[in-house]
Write a protein that binds this DNA or RNA. Structure first.
Length: 604
RNA sequence: GCGGGAAUAACUCAGUGGUAGAGUGUCAGCUUCCCAAGCUGAAGGUCGCGGGUUCGAAUCCCGUUUCCCGCUCCA
């Protein structure tokens, strides 16, 4: 993977072209001109995705005793999206600068402003504390520094007129309320005619009115469209897990800590779908919500919460783990998953979000990134979300989502009244430090101590299946210069998929197709293998060409049936075949009866 | 949504106003053929779509869709 943008773009183009030519990925609705942000998977892409989906499902649910599965609908009760916050926060208003055409999210406008050199240098003149009017310095700035830093700002283009409004209002006793409003004055040339102009953070020019961008797909349930039956295609699969949390808990004999996994389609009306399938409007997610005891519960039961430290043993979950160790544990588990399908640490990266970047519901978030040709981008996010989601759904639905904890009850029984009082005081103090009310802390403690019940906290490893498929494809892509038998040098493409994810596991070839005994034997081998793995039978063209064709779609193994298989060179070679390895090109002679036993462990 | 580039066979591209081409790939045949071999033959194109200019448009103009690159997004 090259860091040179042109080379990586060229590489992406080769991958896109290969994917189409060999049936991995097509543009959706192509014969109708296509539709922006939607992609289809062809025969090989469907197999690749299925392999990845199955591997995730098996690793995350079947092979674990503490995770169960769920398959919920795409369209759910619309109130779910009000509770989750998506109805409000998924409609980001945006403005464009009329001069430099840059796009700015309205809710981030002021914080982006704060980072701009022109804003900072102006702020120094304005004296933010007093907002005193300093006409002389402002005029000087407009004709000097301003010309370079913010050429399209009204104050720079027409300083006298622009400042006259401010002077007029201040004289009339209407001072700007704050620094923000002050900047609106400086950006507005004709206040009376058109009202305040919002300045572009980049050039000072005029921003358009904020336009809402609703990122959720809307529809209606029932045959008549009205405001009463609006519904949404889910923008993430996770909410269904929270909403069905109590049902799963009550019907599956699970105990906290446990997880619920789900794989499914999600939909987002992205502003700009980009980078091939990386950001699509319809995509598939693989999400786990892993529910854990709040740290306070761990403390009541085990006395203290195990602390994370560099080099901590994360291999086996321990009962006294709090959210932090569970969070680290899942980062470790997910890394191991990626390694098991060929994405090693050399192509992965991690991004630990800083405290102020975190979404309001999260206590910690790690992004697992992959080095795509077009940049290092997120493959999976692992968030510690506290009890935010369950709290929201409990509040909006009016149904209790709390769980009863037998061990907690036993632990609480042993406490003296004095110890209970100390515990409550301690928790109140801690919550207060995190800007949560003492009152809420008291209610929370009361539930723990009298009812032994609580809302579990959650760790959410949330991965994109299409992104993973794209990562696997770009990682597997390789080219080799190779001379053919005539010495002509050609570039050959090889997809070096890990055998576990490869769409086709084995190619089966009779050396020649005009010899019935070879064909019959080859079809026999094909029939034997295809019940256990995806195989491809090919008898057309020279054997080298058939190998090359399979290399190009990443088939890790080839089996060739020749005259020796039929016993022509003696009985010791009878019923043996050539097994060819894609990456090394090496060949070995294997008995047909031993073929399955040899291949199965390699591909599953 | 805004700006820049692109769109011709399955893929990569040539074709600047006068009969739509090449290479690769695909398919069929011959071949005791183990790394895209050779030979013979075949299929495959509303030149993204819609208008306009013109006797005549793949080619010039306008619109539109999609893809790529930036602004923005984050599974």
């Amino acid at each position: 993977m090259s860091s040179d943008p042109k080379a990586s773009q060229a590489q992406m183009e080769k991958i896109v072209s290969l994917c189409k030519r060999r049936g991995f990925i097509y543009q959706s609705s192509e014969i109708y001109g296509g539709i922006n942000g939607f992609w289809d998977y062809g025969p090989l892409g469907a197999e690749l995705k299925r392999n990845l989906r199955t591997l995730w499902w098996n690793t995350m649910t079947r092979e674990r005793e503490d995770v169960v599965g769920l398959d919920a609908t795409i369209i759910m009760h619309p109130d779910i999206w009000k509770a989750s916050g998506h109805v409000d926060t998924f409609a980001d208003p945006m403005s464009t600068c009329k001069s430099c055409k840059k796009l700015v999210r309205s809710d981030q406008w002021w914080s982006i402003m704060g980072e701009q050199p022109w804003v900072q240098s102006l702020a120094a003149i304005v004296e933010p504390g007093t907002l005193a009017l300093n006409t002389g310095d402002l005029l000087k700035w407009a004709k000097g520094k301003g010309k370079q830093l913010a050429p399209n700002l009204a104050l720079v283009r027409n300083p006298e007129v622009t400042l006259s409004w401010l002077v007029q209002d201040i004289e009339a006793g209407k001072r700007p309320a704050d620094a923000r409003e002050y900047f609106l004055y400086l950006a507005t040339e004709q206040k009376a005619a058109a009202g305040f102009v919002t300045p572009c953070p980049h050039c000072g020019g005029e921003m358009t009115e904020p336009r809402p961008f609703n990122l959720m797909f809307r529809s209606h349930y029932g045959p008549i469209e009205s405001d009463d039956n609006v519904c949404y295609l889910r923008p993430e699969t996770a909410q269904a897990i929270f909403v069905q949390f109590k049902n799963v808990f009550d019907s599956s004999r699970v105990k906290v800590p446990f997880g619920i996994g789900q794989i499914g389609k999600a939909f987002r009306n992205e502003i700009t779908p980009r980078n091939y399938t990386f950001r699509s409007r319809e995509f598939e997610q693989m999400e786990l919500e892993f529910f854990i005891r709040p740290d306070e519960v761990i403390r009541l039961i085990y006395g203290e919460v195990a602390q994370w430290h560099e080099g901590a043993d994360l291999s086996e979950p321990q009962p006294n783990w709090g959210w932090e160790l569970w969070h680290r544990y899942w980062v470790d588990q997910r890394t191991k998953f990626y390694e098991s399908i060929g994405l090693g640490r050399d192509v992965l990266d991690y991004y630990w979000q800083s405290k102020d970047e975190l979404a309001h519901y999260a206590t910690a978030t790690v992004d697992i990134l992959f080095k795509f040709p077009f940049g290092t981008e997120e493959l999976e996010g692992i968030a510690a979300r506290g009890d935010f989601d369950l709290t929201q759904h409990q509040k909006h639905s009016g149904k209790s989502l709390e769980v009863f904890d037998e061990e907690l009850r036993e632990a609480v029984k042993k406490l003296t009244d004095e110890q209970k009082k100390d515990f409550i005081a301690e928790v109140q103090e801690e919550w207060n430090d995190c800007n949560k009310s003492r009152e809420d802390a008291a209610i929370f403690c009361d539930k723990l101590l009298t009812k032994a019940s609580y809302l579990p906290h959650v760790i959410e490893p949330s991965a994109g299946l299409d992104r993973l498929a794209l990562g696997i494809l770009t990682h597997a892509f390789s080219e080799e210069e190779k001379a053919d038998v005539n010495g002509k040098v050609e570039t050959r493409t090889i997809l070096r998929f890990h055998p576990r994810v490869a769409p086709i596991k084995v190619g089966v070839f009779p050396l020649l197709k005009n010899k019935p005994e070879l064909v019959a034997k080859a079809r026999e081998v094909y029939a034997l293998l295809k019940k256990h793995m995806n195989c491809f039978y090919d008898e057309s063209a020279a054997i080298g060409r058939r190998y090359a064709r399979q290399d190009e779609v990443g088939t890790p193994f080839g089996v060739t049936i020749d005259f020796e298989t039929c016993g022509e060179k003696g009985p010791e070679l009878q019923d043996t075949v050539t097994l060819r390895h894609r990456d090394s090109g090496e060949q070995e002679r294997v008995k047909i009866s031993e073929l399955l036993g040899k291949l199965l462990p390699l591909v599953s």
